[in-house]
Design a protein around this nucleic acid. Sequence first.
DNA 1: ACTAATAGATGGCTTATACATATAGATGCT
DNA 2: AGCATCTATATGTATAAGCCATCTATTAGT
Lengths: 128, 128
Amino acid sequence: MCDQGQSGTGSRCNTGRMRGSVQPRLLLQLARKPAHGYELMEALEDGDAGQAPDPGTLYRTLRALEEDGLVRSTWNTEGAGPARRVYELTDQGVEFLHAWAVSIRGTRAQLDRFLAEYEQQFQIKTGG
Amino acid sequence: MCDQGQSGTGSRCNTGRMRGSVQPRLLLQLARKPAHGYELMEALEDGDAGQAPDPGTLYRTLRALEEDGLVRSTWNTEGAGPARRVYELTDQGVEFLHAWAVSIRGTRAQLDRFLAEYEQQFQIKTGG
DNA sequence: ACTAATAGATGGCTTATACATATAGATGCT
DNA sequence: AGCATCTATATGTATAAGCCATCTATTAGT
């Protein structure tokens, strides 16, 4: 059932990605420069190893962040194309990003422990 | 609303932990030694920085892993106390653990990228 | 008999994210 | 004018992971 060869046929049989990275990545990107959703998607696709969230996730996450006071938005109707909702970080958003960074460092430490134990168990020497 | 000071009042306002680590940690622990649920909980609590999943998560995850053929279980009624369902890894479980390790290395790399960008943005020098 | 420890299991809930689809303005082609 | 396409935002639905609370059962101690 969980054959490695066949790709996900809908079951839980894939080594699921770790969740909880969309929010901090959006906050960090906004810390660099205010931007609208579409722009953020392209930025994450370019710079973040091509791992942008889908539009649904992205826009909904942005609205949630705004509801929580971590970002604020204004409409920008200048320039070509449809109106953009431009987001920027609030002070609270910056603080939150710092908190996320702490949490993420902890997660990374946990992954390091896991990988160390794993490699010890299977006596693997990895270059990276 | 998302004040750092007050702890979770039920909203999404906490720097959410990264999910997706229970399965691989169970598989790795079982790779070291076959064990029953309670034993696994204690092992994860001891060795894994005190981050064991709650019983509900643990036992349900084990059953799911068995349904997927990654572990198999037998009842052990010897010794004191109630019967234990003792789990051990299958060959497929070992393969899956390897796949998880690859995925987790990828996740760690992503976290490293995030933290590098974060530290660059805020010009922080960290000792770790 | 009552309590506690060990051991396993179920029900319900939230969160994060994905996939699919809908809406709408702007631009360009025919 | 009609129509496709790109840009941009949004909603509907589904799902997996994990938490909290609760329940059962066995064994041991008082």
